[in-house]
Design a protein around this nucleic acid. Structure first.
Lengths: 262, 262
DNA sequence: TCATTTTCGCTCAATATCGCTCAAATTAAG
DNA sequence: CTTAATTTGAGCGATATTGAGCGAAAATGA
């Protein structure tokens, strides 16, 4: 019997019972204890199981800090479904060879995860979680702007009040941002005032500023105002966008993509 | 029998069972082991299967990009056990209220994960993976230096050739670094030359420069030289450190902690 | 606490498989 | 029909896997 057959059987037993004994496995696979021991070593080295005295058990999945951000693109509710649709539409706008900026937020994480196959892409971001989605892509050059670490519910970002020095000399084909709220009087608002400087600067460094807005953002006001709603060049949202916003963007001549909810 | 016929049969068997043995395929296709071996090579080169000893199996489900870095503190082998010991000893050196720098590497990730309960800690780092370990700690102020993203086997780091501007004005109580290799003639060496500038600068910005060295580092040379071995203030390693290094550090009067392997 | 039993880690020999080279066979081209 | 190119099969030393034995460490039970 070959190794992969034994491995399959062992893992099968493991998933069924949560743990298996050495003798049990030997009986099932027909291999000697020495071989089974080596198999256990192998499984442990792969991180698929954990050795104990006389057997093997499933690795206890510890919910360590920081771990949860790695599933920051999971779809958990209806709003997340909207975010996913918006992210997909945004990713369809990106072409090979472009230079883009990605903001911080769950929509932006989802967006980043969809860019992996685009050739010769240059990405600049303040989102540590977006970096995780793209770090291993050899076709993508990723630059992370430095600063103090701030955590949101679904993302980690860097914030630097003096970031504008670093940005000098850059130009982006497209900039993709999310915000905490949009309001027709106050405009786009975010929770952290240190973000307003960066985002305002970015709006001057590109000709295509995309705002990614799910329906939870409308008529909400966060602490700090960034810029008025007509500053965005393009808005990507869903058909859940309130009528008065649709009306407003249309009057301002701002291209507004309203995706159908499946 | 032609190649594509065998290929079709092999793939069919693979999809049915998840894996096939060499002899099994030989029996079915009627070809010799040498030919079957070549077929296996071909399938692997095309990415349609993965070779193992004695057979072929389906390519294991690729874990999503970024995911693997989140388990960047797992202990998988003896060297990792050393790293964990070294990280624990290093963490014991850190006091509440201090300002420290953490380098990039698996040892540094483990080290960072052990700092979560220290009060009023200020951490500066270039390691994105270390940030993940500390991001959610309200008692720790984390600053991530910006730059281009580079990935190692167990870590993600930022590299910026002009980083020294950003560092101006900082002072660290302690700096914790790892390297790719130590050599008595060449000193500490790293793979990426852009790291040497930062690390050399750091050695001037603290009175306590700790080098975290597991036994895989000794007598290895990486591409770029940083600084001579006597530049470190303190070395944390294990009793596996070769005698000539022990001797060297002792003669230089460098404090050298050699942890017992459990 | 101490003795017994099981399990562990290690080494060593036997076996199977691998990678490689070279000759034979088949196919393709002139 | 001849010749070159490709594919196939076999042999051989090197490497990897396997199973058994043995002393040490760990779990078990009185």
């Amino acid at each position: 019997m070959k190794y992969w057959e034994r491995e399959k059987q062992i893992l099968h037993l493991l998933e069924a019972n949560g743990a298996v004994s050495m003798t049990e496995v030997c009986a099932v696979t027909g291999a000697s204890v020495a071989t089974t021991r080596r198999d256990f070593d192998e499984l442990q080295k792969k991180g698929l199981a954990q050795r104990t005295h006389g057997g093997l058990r499933l690795p206890q999945k510890k919910e360590e800090p920081g771990r949860r951000y790695v599933n920051g693109t999971e779809i958990l509710d209806d709003i997340d479904r909207e975010k996913q649709l918006i992210a997909r539409e945004a990713a369809a706008q990106v072409r090979a060879g472009e230079s883009i900026f990605i903001g911080a937020g769950k929509t932006c994480n989802m967006f980043a995860a969809l860019l992996r196959d685009i050739e010769r892409l240059t990405v600049v971001t303040t989102s540590v979680t977006a970096v995780l989605e793209l770090a291993e892509c050899p076709n993508i050059s990723v630059t992370l702007l430095g600063g103090d670490i701030h955590t949101g519910k679904n993302y980690i970002e860097t914030l630097d009040p003096d970031i504008n020095h670093t940005l000098r000399g850059y130009f982006f084909d497209k900039v993709f941002l999310t915000v905490e709220g949009v309001d027709l009087e106050r405009g786009y608002t975010v929770q952290d005032k240190n973000r307003t400087g960066l985002y305002t600067q970015l709006s001057r460094m590109t000709r295509r500023l995309y705002m990614l807005l799910d329906s939870a953002k409308f008529d909400r006001r966060a602490f700090a105002t960034m810029f008025p709603p007509e500053k965005a060049c393009r808005v990507i949202s869903t058909r859940n966008m309130p009528e008065k916003f649709v009306e407003f963007y249309r009057r301002q001549g701002i291209s507004c993509t309203l995706l159908p909810i499946e």
